[in-house]
Simulated scan of single mutants.
Amino acid sequence: MSLVACLLWTVFSGSLGGPVQVTNSPFYHLPMFLDAPEPVVAQELFLPVPHRRPVPAGITSLLLPVKRPQQSVQGTGPRAVEVFCGGDQIFVRVDRFQVRSWTNPYLFRLGTCRVSKVNPRFLYFHDRLTECGGESQIVGGQLVYSFTLSYTPPPPQGFAIRVIPLTLPIHCHYNRFHYSYKVGFRPQVQPKTFLKSTRSKLSFSLTVCNEHWEPVPEGQEFVLGELVYFIAQSGVLLAGESLYVDSCYATSTKDPDSQLRVDIITNYGCMTDSRREGSSSYFLSAGGAVLKFSVDALLFRAVSQVLYLHCSMSVSLTTSHVSKSCNYNTAAGRWEELEASPSVCSCCDSTCTDGQDGEFRTSNVEN
C-alpha cells in the first residue's frame, strides 16, 4: 500500500488563477496575486521618478500577464495522507481506513508534534510551520519547510513483528516573491484638522535654604543632624498642574551612579527617610510650581564631608500613586499625603505603579 502526500498549496504554485482577458471587452480580468520563485521584474522599476515616463517593457508582462492554462490534478482516488500548507500553518489529515496496520493514532507524530484531533475515520495535525521541529531551506528559489510523518510502534513481544515503523517525508513549498493586484483603486482624501498644543521644555531647579527659606551661600556648612531645607521649583505650569519630587538620594561624589548612596525620597514621592527613628525629614508644603521639604544633615563614614543630592521631579495634573508627596506619620503608623487622601500613599511600602491616567513630565536635577 503506497502513501501519497498531496501538497495542495504547491500544486498551483505560479498559477494566475483564471483567464486574463475577456473576448470583445475593453476590460482586463487580472488575478488577485501572482507568485514567483524569483523576481519577475527588477525592483528598481517600482521606485518613484520625478517626471513621467513610458511604462517599462519589463512591467508590461506583470501588469498584463499572459493567459496560462489552468492546471489540475488527475484524480487518483482517496489518499491515505493529505497535506495543506497554509500561510503560516500546516494541516495534515491521515485516513485511518487506509493505514489499518498502524492502529494506535497516538503513536503518530508530525516531527515532534502529537495528533491534534482524532475521529473514527481520520486523525488530524494542525500546527504552525515553525513548530514540530521542521527544517526550512531555500530550494530552487522557493522556501521549503520539511517535516516527517512517523509512526513508532512499541517494541515487539516475542519473535513476531506485527507492525513496522512508518516514515513519510512531507514538504511545503512557498514562492519567495509575491505580487498583489489592486485594480481600480482610487484613494479618497478627507481633509481633517488636528490641533496639538506645543510647549517649551520646562526648567526645574533645586535650591538649598536655611530655616527662613533663604538660599544659603556656596560653601555653607551644616552640623550633623541639623535640618537642611530645600525648595524644588519648576517653570510656569498650566492651571491645575503641580510639581512633585519623585526621588532623591545623597552621594559623596557628583557621580549619580555612585554605589555609595542614601535614599531620601523613593517610590514616586515617598519620604523614605521619614520612617527613620527620630527623623525630621518631611515634605513641608506643596502646590503649583513649588514644593518644599527638609532633610536631616548626614555624613558618609570615612569619606568626603561634601554631600550631593540627586533628585528626579515631575509635573502632573492629578495626585496619584506616581505623583504624590507622602510622609510617614510615626504616631499613627501610616503614610499620609501632604495635600490629598492617604490612600495614594498605600503603595509606599511596596512598589508604586501608574494606576490612574494623567499627563506628566519629568526631569532630573542635582544639588
Rank of each mutant, 00 (worst) to 15 (best):
S2T: 11
L3A: 06
A5K: 01
S13N: 12
T23C: 08
S25C: 11
S25A: 12
Y28A: 12
M32W: 09
F33I: 00
D35K: 06
A36M: 01
P37W: 02
L47D: 10
V49H: 12
R52T: 07
P54Y: 08
G58F: 00
I59C: 06
L62R: 06
V66A: 15
K67Y: 00
R68H: 07
F84N: 12
I90K: 02
F97V: 01
V99I: 12
N104D: 15
F108P: 09
R109L: 07
R114S: 15
K117D: 11
P120S: 13
D127Y: 02
D127N: 11
R128G: 08
T130K: 04
E131T: 14
C132W: 05
S136P: 00
T152I: 09
P154V: 07
P155W: 03
P156N: 07
Q157K: 09
V163A: 05
I164L: 11
I164D: 12
I164R: 10
T167C: 01
H171C: 04
H173K: 06
F177N: 09
H178M: 11
K182C: 10
G184D: 10
S197C: 09
S203G: 12
F204L: 04
N210K: 05
P217R: 12
G219L: 08
L224Y: 09
G225N: 05
G225Q: 04
F230V: 15
A232L: 06
A232Q: 02
A232I: 03
A232P: 03
V236P: 10
V236H: 10
E241T: 09
Y244V: 11
D246E: 14
S247G: 10
P256G: 09
P256I: 03
Q259H: 03
L260R: 14
V262H: 04
T266M: 07
G269E: 06
T272K: 15
S274C: 08
E277P: 14
S279A: 15
S281C: 13
F283Q: 10
L284V: 12
S285V: 02
G288Q: 05
K292Y: 04
L299E: 14
F300E: 02
V306M: 06
H310W: 06
H310E: 13
C311Y: 07
S316R: 03
T318D: 14
S323E: 06
S325R: 06
C326V: 10
N327Y: 00
T330I: 08
A332K: 15
E336G: 07
E337R: 02
E337S: 15
L338T: 00
S341E: 13
C345M: 03
C348V: 06
D354P: 01
G355A: 06
D357Y: 08
E359V: 12
T362Y: 04
V365E: 09
